[in-house]
Design a protein around this nucleic acid. Structure first.
Lengths: 222, 222
DNA sequence: AATATATCAGGAACTCTGTCTCGATAAAAA
DNA sequence: TTTTTATCGAGACAGAGTTCCTGATATATT
């Protein structure tokens, strides 16, 4: 019954395999070994096997996995073969950037409308997607059975917009704001957290520099 | 010697504490307990204490931590108090969005120039930052001692641009492309991987729906 | 046909991260 | 001054995830 016991790290790695495999398929390669995938993507080969096993795809000794089959397995597993309609709220710089990506449609998400509160952009079309006033979201979301909401608003507005989304029947929120919205049980929130990334980057760079400095100025005596 | 043994999850959580604490400080709150931080951010309170301990900040029983001190400690720890100059390559939609964020400067990264290969945008200024031809990157990066490179180019170009960055002395790459560039030892790469996020989101949503469907159509007999 | 080899798959061991428990301590209350 | 209470900090424990190890299997080689 508990089919959802897939490690989250696995879910995070699958898209990276997917992109790698699609490019491989485009190059015309038919078969691939887990060892090769692992080497190219910097993941241990046993890890690759375990991750792929979750998708149900099986490999054959001595020849590896069929590239096209793997692509199909991952697509099915992630439910990327039939895109779910999504609403985006916050048509600022980041929101506009996301609207520009046709690639999301292949990743299970199709942005069908954008919302904002600024009159200057309401009514315009960005990359073929209309920007509507936020007040229209609840009604439209219900009527169109929208289940994914993309949150690209400033931190201050994030909680209110998240509440509005949930009240309108949206079940999953892709959150780009630097705050984590408080949501009721059962609602899925996936935080992008750009600043987390910067935390890791800056700290590692600082350590890296300190190490380089220490090494050059005086490699301490044994 | 091994001062860099900070768990990566901790580094990822620190920015979220930081934002929370800055907002608290703006509201005029002086003291805060780890328990309260944990509750508001959805992190176990013991976890909050361990994370904050890495920054060197100490709390006092019965009163908690000093908000302003905590902010300062995290800033220092992540090296966010003096922003490092960065070059951005790929002034497309996403690149433009990133150029628009003044907030990165408070997160240790100051974008001082953008690069692209498309003549249509070379020479323009985006949010006060000039877009220069990619060929100028190596020379400028060396002369300005740039150590952070932001990669917002299509997957096909990612590896080549990463190579160029590294050859120009850049030590840390903030990568937004869906491929993981192959870099020599010692170079820091932090991948944002938007699609990983979507992998988790789509899969969870699919599982969520299956569960809802199963519950409604027939809650299996005990 | 027999042997060798590349690859897969599943279980065991280890490591890392997160949670729980306990004693200590500083402020407040009695 | 003594007692109570909120909070901290450190160590013990538990769970998850990754790596290692062994055995199985399909193709290639002799």
């Amino acid at each position: 019954m508990r089919a959802e016991s897939v490690p989250e790290p696995t879910l995070r790695r699958l898209p990276s395999y997917y992109h790698y495999l699609v490019r491989l398929r485009e190059k015309g390669q038919e078969m691939i070994s887990a060892a090769q995938i692992g080497e190219d993507l910097g993941v241990h080969h046993t890890q690759v096997r375990k991750d792929l096993a979750f998708t149900g795809s099986q490999g054959r000794p001595k020849v590896g996995h069929h590239v096209a089959d793997l692509v199909a397995s991952i697509e099915t597993f992630l439910n990327w073969n039939n895109a779910t309609d999504a609403f985006l709220v916050g048509a600022g710089h980041l929101g506009t950037a996301l609207l520009g990506y046709a690639g999301f449609e292949r990743a299970g998400v199709k942005i069908v409308a954008a919302f904002d509160t600024r009159p200057s952009i309401i009514g315009k079309k960005i990359r073929g997607v209309s920007v509507l006033p936020l007040e229209k979201l609840p009604d439209l979301a219900r009527r169109m059975h929208i289940s994914i909401g993309i949150l690209t608003v400033p931190a201050e507005a994030a909680q209110d917009v998240a509440d509005l989304m949930i009240a309108s029947g949206i079940q999953a929120i892709w959150n780009f704001a630097p705050t984590v919205p408080d949501v009721p049980n059962g609602v899925i929130v996936e935080n992008v957290a750009l600043y987390s990334s910067l935390g890791v980057l800056s700290h590692k760079l600082a350590v890296h520099r300190r190490a380089a400095l220490a090494a050059s100025s005086g490699p301490k005596p044994a």
